[in-house]
């Protein structure tokens, strides 16, 4: 019993200490995990699960909205792009690919947007005042994690449908590569959350 309750309680305590952006990160990771579980259950039940890609795309767009579009001058630009991609999902699904097909274009665009924003924010962080130490700044780890995750997921999303239909070897290769790089990214997120107490609520933290 304690094995179940203890992690949940610890998680709730940590959740209360997180700020809005970090909560969006946790929610995003949980949605990806839940999506994978549902997709696996559907696969084992011999049901086509490609519609889960719509959920994953929406999760990425939600993350971008809460993590990257909550402040700064580029807020409205990022929000506009997110809205445009979100509107494009049903258009791609119902007009182009058909329901329960992978939404290649919008999914790739969403991951690429996340990658670009992570790169820009990481560069902005590195260009910030040298007075502030970055070693224990959690956002360095978050942005690096998003950059790695987004870059490889975008590459996979671009070809996943094609590979499923034409070459399962390449599909499994890409899938394994994304899993490995995802492990690296998740490790970085864990490091960032470990360091969150130092700067996450600081008024002059560079993020």
């Amino acid at each position: 019993m304690i094995v179940i309750v203890w992690p949940i309680l610890t998680g709730l305590i940590v959740w209360r200490q997180l700020d809005r952006r970090e909560r969006s990160l946790i929610a995003f990771l949980l949605s990806l995990l839940t999506g994978e579980i549902i997709a696996t259950i559907l696969r084992f039940s011999m049901m086509r699960n490609h519609f889960m890609h719509y959920v994953a795309t929406l999760a990425v767009l939600g993350l971008i909205l809460f993590f990257y579009a909550n402040s700064g001058r580029s807020r409205w630009i990022v929000t506009s792009i997110v809205v445009a991609i979100t509107v494009s999902i049903p258009i791609e699904v119902f007009v182009w690919t058909g329901f329960n097909q992978i939404n290649t274009v919008t999914e790739t665009l969403a991951w690429l947007l996340l990658t670009s924003l992570a790169f820009i924010n990481l560069k902005h962080l590195l260009d910030s005042s040298a007075e502030v130490s970055l070693r224990k700044n959690p956002f360095v780890y978050y942005h690096t994690g998003f950059f790695i995750l987004g870059f490889f997921r975008a590459g996979k999303s671009c070809f996943v449908r094609y590979f499923i239909e034409t070459s399962l070897d390449l599909y499994f290769f890409m899938d394994t590569l994304v899993v490995i790089m995802g492990a690296v990214a998740y490790s970085l997120f864990a490091l960032g959350i470990l360091y969150r107490q130092r700067l996450s609520v600081s008024s002059n933290a560079v993020v």
């Binding site: 990481l122 560069k123 590195l126 260009d127």
Partner: peptide
């Protein structure tokens, strides 16, 4: 990014 980081450390 690594180059920017090294530059920052140098600064």
């Amino acid at each position: 990014l690594f180059y920017r980081y090294r530059l920052r450390q140098f600064m």
